[in-house]
Design a binder for these strands. Structure first.
Lengths: 336, 336
DNA sequence: GTGAAAGCGCTAACAT
DNA sequence: ATGTTAGCGCTTTCAC
């Protein structure tokens, strides 16, 4: 591995000059800079991140803490985060808890603190008191993406408002018999989001003087298969069936659509279904939904931290990211 | 940030002892080790990865190069890789090309070489001649996951065999009018996989004396929505319609199923559909498919590199990972 | 505009 | 079993 000394020696200049030249610092003659850049390229020199990290205190890497990687929302956020980091020349380190309880401790008390990253993004998930404290005590910039975590800055959509918009859309279509397919529960993803959406559902129904039937609160676990099973039961009785289902996520909405198809229930004729997310499959499935853009949220959060790293002063508290109702073919007037 | 000197000073021992004790090296009295561990915890000491990386030459991090993060296969592989890395105390650094051409160069010639990682996993994707060379010249262990890349070691399923198994399953059910929904094309994912699967489809058909109709080779781009659109055309004419569709991925199979539903074509009565992957949605969708396990592939590859890092000698060339036909409700005898 | 030199916080030989 | 010491490859004052 060729080092900065090789470049310096090969040019007969000092390592300081090479360092300055390559990092675009002022106080280097343009001609010198050009020569340095040229030989660096020729020799295939790339600075060691360990060495420059140690010397400068900046690692040029950002960490993202996720409960799991391979779920729609999380991987989409990662994509957005990565986009901004790439543009800024930062590397992306992913700390995944992987549903593993044993691992959590190591992640919180070793990995994250190892001086390997300059800033940390925490994906919405349930944190213990102690973990929250650990995050808050981090000496570098950090932020939560998605659901709110008490005492930590966060960026995301206004979940309550998004859920309300969905439910009021159904109500506006004349629906009064509305069921809720709820998420939450499994592994570490039992953050605020499912709670906020459920609460907003109940509140909105109440605000419109509509009853909430407890047996129409189905558990879908934010998953297609769980939701399908639940919906199969929810929709089984043709005589006592909701005319609409508000789903706390698109994946669960797909489960409801599948169940309806299996039961021969026409959508939207006999049943309206609305989701939240605007998942990649929502458009081809014709699913009406509340669009959110996880990649945008990730990018926004990453930019915010990048800015703080640059300016050495905290940004303003971030506003909610937008959401948008997208009307498709899975919803229609009641009894149409 | 408390350093190793703080711990050493606080105990009146040398930094070397602290280092040895904490890393579990031999030659430390158990009593000393206990005291060191205790004060390290008390002081909240965590070794700086930059410093230990610089001193030891090991970064305790592994890199994964992906074309994009947020697609089923890639995020599932990442999950598997991460599982093993976590267990081994390694951190995961994700280098994503993000479909961005400009970025590729930086990734290949800076990030990857920055002495930030001890080994590299490359996800199957199209690499230019020069990029392949760059990977091959890497001085640390590396391997490709998924499709083969010439001259680089790789781990994955036997794609040709998987496709053949799928097609022969359809043929075994009596189908002769078989269409192919193919992938490939978009962004950097135009690797070997789509080509291998298509070729195997053609070869298998030929081996059984069956014709391949060019207008039944539909392009699904490995995506639900593209596949649905293509299938809508493919299946439009009730008189000249395949009785079965072999899909190079499950997501495309979902698109075919959706198109069939929209066209009122009964599955499997009038149309059999088979995929490859066993995507999370395949079971609830009742999709017959060839199961592969990307997380297993990622874990396998990570383990292999981890082993080489430990033993300092190359592993045997890895065998193909297994695939498995999973029969569900989307396939049936022809004309049933 | 450039160079010399002192670290950054560890690890690894080499001593003891 | 433990301590001493010389780096690892940079960045960053401080000189010139």
């Amino acid at each position: 591995m060729t080092s900065i000394d090789d470049v310096a020696a090969s040019l007969g200049v000092s390592t300081a000059t090479v360092s300055r030249a390559l990092r675009g610092l002022p106080g280097v003659a343009e001609e010198t800079r050009a020569r340095v850049t040229a030989t660096a390229n020729k020799l295939g020199y790339v600075p060691s991140s360990s060495a420059s990290g140690l010397a400068s205190g900046r690692t040029m890497a950002m960490g993202v803490l996720v409960p799991v990687i391979d779920r729609w929302y999380f991987s989409a956020v990662l994509e957005g985060v990565d986009r901004q980091l790439r543009a800024a020349g930062y590397d992306l380190i992913v700390f995944s808890l992987g549903g593993d309880g044993v691992n959590r401790d190591r992640v919180f008390h070793r990995s994250i603190l190892r001086k390997r990253i300059d800033a940390l993004l925490v994906m919405c998930m349930h944190l213990t008191e102690e973990e929250r404290t650990a995050v808050q005590e981090l000496e570098y910039p950090n932020i939560v993406i998605g659901g709110a975590v008490e005492g930590v800055r966060h960026v995301g959509i206004d979940d309550a408002r998004a859920a309300r918009d969905a439910v009021e859309y159904l109500i506006g279509l004349g629906h009064t018999q509305i069921a809720h397919m709820r998420g939450g529960g499994s592994f570490d993803i039992d953050f605020e989001v499912p709670r906020l959406r459920e609460q907003a559902f109940r509140q909105t129904m109440a605000d419109h003087g509509l009853p909430v039937r407890e047996d129409w609160s189905a558990f879908g676990d934010f998953r297609f298969s769980t939701s399908r099973s639940s919906a199969l039961k929810l929709l089984a009785d043709p005589l006592h069936r909701p005319t609409a289902v508000f789903c706390s996520s698109d994946e669960m909405a797909f489960g409801v659509l599948k169940a309806a198809a299996e039961l021969g229930i026409a959508v939207p004729g006999q049943l309206s279904v609305i989701g939240i997310d605007d998942h990649e499959f929502a458009e081809p499935m014709g699913l009406t939904t509340i669009r959110q853009d996880p990649a945008d949220q990730g990018a926004f959060a990453a930019d915010l931290l990048l800015g703080e790293l640059l300016r050495h002063e905290p940004s303003e508290y971030p506003p909610s990211r937008p959401h948008l109702l997208v009307e498709r073919q899975s919803t229609g007037p009641v009894g149409a």
